Computed example of a mutant assay.
Amino acid sequence: MDVRAPARTWGGRTADERRAQRREALVAAALEIWLDSGWAAVTMRGVCQRAGLNDRYFYENFADRDELLGEVWDEVCAEVFADLAAVITENSDRTPVQILRAAIARAVALQADQRSRARILLAEHAGSAVLELRRQRMLTDSTDMMVAVAWPYLRPGVDETAFRMSTLAGIGGFIELLTAWRTGVLDVDADRIAEHTSMIALQLGAMFLPPELLGG
Rank of each mutant, 00 (worst) to 15 (best):
C77F: 12
E132W: 00
E124G: 05
G127V: 11
D93T: 09
A105Q: 12
E17C: 01
A25K: 07
S37Q: 14
M138I: 08
M146N: 04
W34C: 02
L133I: 02
R4N: 10
V27K: 00
D141C: 00
L133V: 08
R115A: 14
D141Q: 13
R65T: 14
V42M: 05
N61A: 15
V97K: 05
A86R: 09
D55V: 09
Q114R: 10
A85K: 03
T43H: 09
V87Q: 01
E79S: 10
V42N: 04
T14V: 14
L133T: 09
E124L: 03
I99A: 02
L131M: 09
G12E: 12
V108C: 06
V3G: 04
Q111T: 13
E75P: 00
D64Y: 02
E32M: 04
D64F: 02
C77V: 12
M146Q: 09
F58R: 04
A112Q: 15
V80R: 05
L26E: 07
Q21H: 12
W34M: 01
E32H: 07
V108L: 07
G11I: 08
W73H: 10
P6V: 13
A109Y: 01
L84F: 02
L26C: 06
E71N: 00
Y57D: 04
T9R: 15
V80N: 03
E132D: 12
S37M: 05
T43S: 15
Y57M: 08
L84Q: 02
R135L: 07
V76W: 06
D64G: 05
M145T: 10
R134W: 01
L122T: 15
A63Y: 06
R23P: 13
S92E: 15
R101V: 07
V3I: 14
M145I: 08
R135M: 10
A5V: 10
F58I: 10
L100S: 12
T143V: 13
L110H: 00
D144L: 06
A51D: 11
E71R: 06
R8H: 09
A7H: 11
A109L: 03
Q111I: 15
L121Y: 02
T143R: 13
T143F: 06
I120M: 11
C77Q: 14
R18C: 01
E60Q: 11
G11V: 08
A107V: 04
A25R: 11
R94W: 05
L139E: 14
S37N: 13
C48L: 05
L84W: 00
V3Y: 12
V87K: 02
A30N: 07
L133S: 11
D74P: 01
A123C: 13
V87W: 03
A28E: 15
V130F: 03
G46F: 14
A63V: 14
E79R: 05
T43D: 08
R13V: 04
A28V: 01
W10H: 11
A109R: 11
A123E: 15
I104R: 00
L31I: 09
R137I: 00
R56L: 12
A129W: 00
F62D: 10
D113S: 05
D64E: 06
S142N: 13
D144P: 04
G11N: 13
F58Q: 03
V108R: 06
R56G: 10
G38I: 09
D93P: 00
I104E: 00
G52N: 09
A7R: 15
R18D: 00
S92A: 13
A5D: 08
A105R: 12
D144T: 11
A102D: 01
D66E: 14
L31Q: 11
A51R: 04
I99L: 10
A51T: 12
V97W: 07
